[in-house]
Amino acid sequence: MASNPESFYELYRRSSIGMALMDMLDDLISVERIYPQLAMKILANFDQAITEALQKSVRARLTFKGSLSTYRFCDEVWTFLIKNVQFKLDSGGQIVHADKVKIVSCNAKKPGEGA
């Protein structure tokens, strides 16, 4: 529903692109090109845009296998720590190896709104 004011997770702010955006906003505030209020608005738009872009526009897929070391479910957030992970990319079957991977996943819908 377009009119439904939704709130979006802020977890992508800690991604490389989110950190770079915040550095850039800091620079613009430093040279007084923008006000902090606009920076807040931009970050809120970023939260929405990156969530929607990852949900709707990213079609690349991969599969991975590894050993599940730890998992927990706390405050509606799943966390998985996986060791010896092999990622198999969609295009060409290229395999990428990682010693340790942490996956943090939040419910796409707010608690109590169904699955």
Partner: peptide, 10 residues
């Protein structure tokens, strides 16, 4: 040190 202008995000 930078000032409250930079407290727009946690």
């Amino acid at each position: 040190s930078r000032g409250s202008k930079f407290a727009y995000t946690s």
